[in-house]
Amino acid sequence: MNDFSYSRPTTTTEAIQTLLSHPDALYLAGGTNVIDHLKLGVVTPSQLVDIRHLGLDKISTDAQSVTIGAGATNSAAAYHHEIQTHFPALAEAILAGASPQLRNVATTGGNLLQKTRCTYFRDIHSACNKRQPGSGCAALEGFNRSHAILGTSDACIATHPSDMAVALTALEAVIHIQDQSVVRTVPIEAFYVSYGEDPAKENVLKPGDLIVAIEIPRTAWAGHSRYVKARDRSSYEFALASAAVAVDVDAGKIRNCRIALGGVATKPWRAHAAEAALVGQSATPVAFRAAAEAELASAKAQKENGFKIELCKRVMVKALQEAAEMRRA
């Protein structure tokens, strides 16, 4: 681990100012991703700016939405009564990720910004465009069983690892970002950018930008939402394929739905094609399967991860079935 200094600001302005005046400093929230990367040499900051003392850990609710402070722990969010009751897919997604120990310190903001688990990204001796732009992508010809089938490019095929972000994408969360002068809001779908040429650029954050909160709107479908995750072991493992689904079913017909996929794409993947295929349809397994086929039509398999295409379809169908049943219950 390289040497670095540690600071503990108590206001957001101080924290942002410190980052702006030290471009190679990093925010430190729960630290479960940053400290891991420090040990691997993936990041070598001059300073860690501890943002756990900025009062960003509140979870508040009103008639329109629930707002989770960026510093609220994953455990606090997952066990929050309002979130469990009205946004079940979010609670399920968080609890399907990492371990209790990690969730007890990992924060909402840190979770959104966690980096890919691609082995080559984590090995500083490998070629990796995401870690070292222009160095190539070792995964294209290497071990790529866990890599993405949607949104890939010749530059990078890594998946975004977060479960929570998938649920937040289906629930159309809005990210509140503070800079030197203002707090702006960005819908989560626009927050994560497509890789294109530069896989190192994953989101719209500018230097110094601090995520302060994540707001989730109340909708007719959020309460009937499910998160289904398939992985290599039954717990404490990243997704091979996952789906967050929210549906509004009326008299057997799908009035509205939101679907997002995880473990299969380079960013939390909003399944617009599947949604379009479902609206107005009867909530039947046949319709669910057709929607899954529509979404995965553009999937591109690598040498080792072709199985994810069928796996993802089945995960989607299961999530849709479960969510539709909640509606009837």
């Binding site: 729960g30 371990s99 007890n104 310190v105």
Partner: peptide
């Protein structure tokens, strides 16, 4: 690297992995 739990301790009564957190925090 937070993958095994052997280093689990309690901080203010809450269980955490002591390998993925800095003493200074």
């Amino acid at each position: 690297h937070g993958q095994c739990g052997a280093c689990t301790v309690l901080i203010n009564g809450v269980r955490v992995n002591s390998c993925l957190t800095l003493a200074a925090m």
